[in-house]
Amino acid sequence: MIDRQPCVYILASAAYGTLYIGVTSDLIARLGEHRSGTIKGFTSQYQVYRLMRYEPFDTMEGAIEREKQLKRWHRQWKINLIESNNPHWVDLAVPLGFDPVPARGRRNGP
Rank of each mutant, 00 (worst) to 15 (best):
D3F: 11
L70M: 15
T38E: 14
R53I: 09
L81C: 10
G17N: 06
R30G: 01
H74F: 09
W77S: 15
A14F: 03
S84P: 09
G22L: 05
E55M: 10
R66N: 13
V23W: 02
R35Y: 09
L51I: 01
W89C: 07
A15R: 08
P110K: 13
G62A: 15
T38I: 08
P56G: 04
Y49V: 04
N108Q: 14
A29G: 07
E83P: 01
N85E: 14
D91E: 03
L31P: 02
P95C: 03
I79K: 03
A63K: 09
S44T: 12
L92M: 03
R107V: 15
T38P: 00
N80G: 08
D26F: 07
Y20G: 04
P102M: 08
V48L: 01
I64E: 11
A93T: 03
I2V: 12
G37T: 11
V94E: 04
Y54P: 05
Q76K: 03
V94N: 05
M52W: 08
L31D: 01
S84E: 14
Q47S: 10
Q5L: 13
W77H: 14
G105R: 09
I39F: 01
V101N: 03
N80E: 14
W73G: 06
T38F: 00
L51R: 01
R75P: 02
G17R: 02
G97Y: 00
P100T: 07
W77T: 12
Y46E: 01
P56R: 11
S44P: 01
G105L: 11
W77N: 13
Y46R: 07
P6Q: 05
G97T: 04
